[in-house]
Computed example of a mutant assay.
Amino acid sequence: MTTPTYQKLERNALGRLVLTDAAGTLHEAVVPVRAHPISAPDEGLSLVGQDGHELAWIDRLSALPAPDRALLEAELASRDFMPTILSIKAVSTYSTPSQWTVQTDRGETQFILRTEEDIRRLGEGRLLIASSHGLQLMLPDRFALDKGSKKILERFL
């Protein structure tokens, strides 16, 4: 198990993360930053102070004590907004730009796909799709999609 390089992690009255480092110094408004948010979200997490400097490094989020892990996961969830595509309902045209209607883990949404290059292959069937407004949508396994979704997606890959 990884031993944290800090003494204590908690929220203050304003809801901001406060880190007490190994020397006992308090650091307010600490921000967790993932080293590899897409390819390895559980590995490599930096706790950064207000000045932008790293205060602590965490090898594995899952190795932390449950209270600290819960605090960091809640903080990361509020910062990392990446809906997961569950199915592709429709596209306006099979050329780009096109408007996509998709079902995500956060409900149905529509976005504009500017070019086929906005669909990034991450390996193992995972795709990252960027909308024209910069929103990133994750498709965790294109091979697990329903038949209709696969048919639509194949036209763009």
Rank of each mutant, 00 (worst) to 15 (best):
E28K: 05
V31D: 03
S62L: 00
S87F: 06
V91E: 03
L55Q: 06
A66K: 13
E75W: 06
H53F: 08
I38N: 07
G123P: 00
T101H: 04
T115C: 08
L26D: 07
I85H: 01
R114S: 13
V48H: 05
L19Q: 02
Y94A: 10
D59E: 14
A29P: 05
H27S: 04
T96W: 14
R34Q: 15
E124F: 10
A35I: 12
E124M: 07
D59I: 02
I38Y: 11
P83A: 02
L86E: 14
R79L: 14
L45S: 04
L45E: 04
D21N: 12
I58A: 08
R120E: 14
D118G: 11
L76W: 10
E117A: 15
E43L: 14
M82Y: 10
I88H: 07
S98G: 11
L128W: 06
P83C: 03
H53M: 08
L122F: 05
V31G: 00
T25S: 10
H36G: 00
L128I: 07
E73K: 08
S62F: 00
E108I: 00
Q103E: 12
E116Q: 10
L122G: 11
Y94Q: 14
S87W: 07
L72R: 03
R126K: 14
P65K: 11
L19T: 01
P32W: 05
Y94D: 11
A56L: 04
V102R: 00
A77H: 11
T93V: 12
G24W: 00
D118Y: 09
V91H: 01
V31W: 09
T109I: 00
R106P: 04
S62M: 00
V33E: 06
R69H: 01
